[in-house]
Design a protein around this nucleic acid. Structure first.
Ligand SMILES: [Mn+2]
Ligand SMILES: [Mn+2]
Ligand SMILES: [Mn+2]
Ligand SMILES: [Mn+2]
Lengths: 215, 215
DNA sequence: TATAATTTTTAGCTTTGTCTAAATTTAATT
DNA sequence: AATTAAATTTAGACAAAGCTAAAAATTATA
């Protein structure tokens, strides 16, 4: 499997996680910052290899084979992110780009040894679950901070937006995985939140609150 | 720089280490298991980018820029090999193939952090020197076992042939980096050697002896 | 339901890196 | 020096993955 094929599978996998229905050509093109015509070409190829169910004009979904392949790429991506943060001391906003490269390294033995070396983590530095060697995922139920009400409390267990900009913002506000967050006030006018993180009180917009997972 | 360009530079670098003179198109083709015509095409491109000095029909050499680029790839290759052996417990005959992939990961920060994580090793699992971040190499003088005479002694510090087959043979004979080797007898008829490794006496052919470095 | 807008696919072109076969240059031998 | 052999380059083709522009299908709207 080429890097490109792997990237398409991964994108379809991620899009499936949110929408459930068949994925459109345009949705893939947008996410991958490529053109719809390029996507069509690739979908034909992936379909030929039985990695996706593709019907002209009707969108695409992963076959079981394609789904497992996608999970293995996600597994590698997230394990490498753990390695970078826990062993090499990278911060969580620096690792995604490098993991985008490392996820394409081909060696089952390598990834399984890496998994052991890291102590078989179940989540990556952004709180996303790591599929095991068989593709199994332990799902942790988590809610967005934006869905919380006044006086509720929880622990930050993940982020929805994993962009470097957003993660750096969280660093600045001293919000990290494990941080305890308490909703002090919810402003009805703009749905912003007044929250306590540790011993500090800060105000975050609804957009921010919609990208932090709490449990 | 593409993977392919990097592989060509690396190959020219390695061929230069043994021959000194300009490298021929065919020599590159043979080492890379590709065709001479493909090599010619690539040499033109690398020349265009000032990575090699190339004169039609006259062979090729690395420019300073090309040499540094090649060294950085070798640095990555050998550091990853260290990682695989020392941290992930791979044996020295398994790591080359995986390092061939990992050497193309692009991130200076990553490789320098990896270097630190490993304790800034100066040699890889096969006894080959690791260039530092500036491309500097600490050369250790070493001789081939085949050049030794009766009653001489030394420590195994490297191997010339790093093929999996040869390394497995050495494992079987319990010869590893650091092993003390003593020449008991040199057979003049076939230039084979009777040697002592640890407390065992074994006979090795001249071909074997010509691939083990001693100091 | 007919028309317009949007989405998707097709057709044709480009770049990268490879190949084979033919032409050219260099090296080796009479 | 002329001829043969070997090495190297050129010419032309191909597959992968991308693009633009045009055609076709689907969906939305009047
Ligand atoms: Mn990531
Ligand atoms: Mn992540
Ligand atoms: Mn190697
Ligand atoms: Mn090595």
């Amino acid at each position: 499997m080429t890097f490109s094929e792997e990237n398409y599978l991964k994108t379809i996998y991620h899009l499936t996680a949110v929408s459930d229905a068949d994925i459109s050509t345009n949705a893939i093109a947008e996410k991958m910052e490529t053109k719809a015509s390029s996507v069509t070409d690739m979908l034909k190829k992936l379909s030929e290899k039985d990695l996706v169910n593709y019907v002209k004009y009707q969108g695409v979904s992963l076959t079981e084979k394609g789904k497992l392949a996608a999970k293995m790429i996600v597994r590698k991506h997230r394990l490498w992110e753990c390695f970078l943060v826990e062993k090499l001391d990278f911060s969580w906003d620096e690792v995604h780009e490098i993991a985008e490269q490392l996820e394409h390294i081909k060696s089952e033995k390598l990834i399984n040894k890496l998994d052991d070396f890291l102590g078989n983590p179940t989540e990556d530095p952004h709180g996303d679950p790591i599929p095991d060697a068989n593709g199994r995922i332990i799902k942790v139920e988590k809610q967005l901070l934006s869905e919380f009400e006044k006086n509720q409390m929880g622990i930050c267990v993940g982020v929805k937006d994993t962009s470097s900009d957003f993660l750096k913002y969280l660093d600045k506000q001293e919000i990290a995985l494990g941080s305890q967050i308490e909703i002090i006030e919810k402003e009805s006018f703009d749905s912003s939140f007044r929250i306590r993180v540790g011993n500090k009180e800060i105000t975050v917009s609804n957009k921010i609150a919609s990208n932090i997972y709490i449990k």
